[in-house]
Amino acid sequence: MELYKMALYILAMAGVTYVIRMIPMTFFRKKITSVYLKSLLYYVPYAVLSAMTFPYIFYSTGNVYTALIGTAVALIAATCKRSLLTVAICACVAVFIAGMIII
């Protein structure tokens, strides 16, 4: 993509994200009372992150097998409730070592 177009895309992203954050804070002072709508907004982040992670995590390292090993390590570390940084480092190290052995 050309740079000017990329800059335009980034500005469009920023604009949309800003408007979402800005409207309630400045204009809209009512509470949302619908339980369904509140629940929906509560679940969306988890569903989004999961949909963004799977299956793309399997292709994130340039090799499906090292990625699968990294994914498994991340899942285990996350189940043990490690911090974001620890989980990320464990997964990266696992991918790096697997890469040295497999490739």
């Binding site: 992670t53 793309y56 995590i57 994130s60 340039g62 994914t71 996350a78 189940t79 990320a88 997964a91």
Partner: peptide, 25 residues
């Protein structure tokens, strides 16, 4: 080098896993 960036490529996804797994349990 590519061997390192390939390994780092999983970092952001691993962080997402770290965010979604504990509340799922």
């Amino acid at each position: 080098p590519a061997s390192v960036t390939n390994a780092l490529g999983i970092a952001l996804y691993a962080m997402f896993v770290a965010i979604i797994v504990p509340p799922s349990i």
